[in-house]
Amino acid sequence: MKQLTIAGQTVPAIGIGTWHMGDQPAQRSAEIAAIQAGIAAGARVIDTAEMYGAGRAESLVGEALANERREDLFLISKVLPENASRQKLAVSLDASLQRLRTDYLDLYLYHWRGTVPLAETVSTLQQLQTTGKIRAWGISNFDQADLNELWSLPGGNQAAANEDLYHLGSRGLEYDVLPWQRAHQLPLIAYSPIAQGDVWGHHLTTNEIVQQVAAAHHATVYQVLLAWVIRQPQTLAIPQTSSIAHMQQNIAAGALTLTAEELAQLDQAFPAPTTKQPLDTL
């Protein structure tokens, strides 16, 4: 099972995403069961945010994890840009902790940039880390220019991870962001690693090469897409599913290694960027 080190902890390279979870009461029991199945299958990382369902995803996660050993988990949440000020950040954090039924986060991310000065957000995150309510902090939806700015600030180089959109159909990070992060030893958290089931028109799962690679490994197309993402060093993928079977398959993809020939075929079908690309976000 492929692993990475993030915020000083070694965790499996495939975790559990929770975007869109908690929105439909009729799905609640299935979503809780899926999260619990993922943990039983070996996942340690659960990624959520105050934005997801206006806190409903965090509440769902809190319920799902109520009987788990907290020290076995790596819990990530995110603060909205409008709450990332010196006055509001601690309040948002406390609300997230209450919904999650925990007294600390392993990683707290600035969800995306807003109007609050970055230096103010960073200094406040640094202060919150000293309280023990967060073990580490990081950022999300940061491009290379944002990362350069962050690193120029006092304490900015203490960021523990950057969470960006990354999948086979969205490879813009490979041109500049990923090389920058490798050079600065900053792990990547890849959100929407299976392109949200092709809802954005990438047609990854119906691609002939992807299907052929999956067949060769007796794997699903989603497992191939996840294995492709975590081929990158120090990369964590956080797919979301409300299906127990799909959750178990997602976690099992951490043991799937694609061959050099297969990677070359996928490169041909979905070429890497040769110029700077605008940062993809959802």
Rank of each mutant, 00 (worst) to 15 (best):
M1S: 15
K2M: 13
A7I: 08
Q9I: 12
V11Y: 15
V11P: 03
I14L: 10
I14M: 04
G17E: 03
M21P: 09
M21A: 10
S29A: 11
I32A: 08
I35F: 07
I39N: 03
V45E: 03
I46D: 04
D47Q: 07
E50V: 03
E50W: 04
G53Q: 08
L60F: 09
G62W: 10
E68A: 12
F74Y: 06
F74K: 01
K78I: 01
K78S: 04
K78F: 03
V79N: 05
P81M: 02
E82M: 08
A84I: 00
A84G: 01
S85Y: 06
L89W: 07
V91A: 14
D94E: 14
Q98W: 06
R101V: 10
R101I: 03
T102R: 04
Y104F: 14
L105P: 00
Y108A: 06
R113S: 09
T115Q: 12
E120M: 12
V122I: 15
Q126W: 15
L128H: 09
G132T: 02
G132V: 03
G132M: 11
R135W: 08
R135D: 07
N141Y: 04
D146L: 08
L147F: 15
E149R: 08
E149T: 02
W151T: 13
W151F: 15
L153G: 00
G155T: 10
G156W: 09
G156H: 10
N157W: 09
Q158A: 14
Q158H: 13
A159K: 06
A161N: 07
D164Q: 11
H167S: 10
G172H: 02
Y175R: 12
Y175V: 07
D176V: 04
W180S: 07
A183F: 14
H184S: 12
Q185K: 15
L186V: 15
I189L: 14
Y191R: 02
S192Q: 08
P193G: 05
I194P: 05
D198E: 00
H203T: 00
H203V: 00
L204W: 08
E208R: 07
V210A: 07
Q212M: 13
V213F: 09
A215T: 11
H218E: 14
A219V: 01
A219T: 05
V221Q: 09
Y222T: 01
I230P: 03
Q234A: 15
T235Q: 05
T235G: 00
L236C: 11
L236K: 03
A237C: 12
S243W: 10
I244D: 09
A245S: 12
H246L: 12
Q248R: 06
Q249L: 13
N250E: 10
N250V: 09
I251R: 05
A252W: 10
A253Y: 08
A255G: 10
A255M: 00
L258Y: 00
L258T: 05
T259D: 06
A260E: 10
E261A: 11
L266I: 13
L266C: 10
A269E: 15
A269Q: 13
P271R: 14
A272L: 15
D280P: 07
L282A: 02
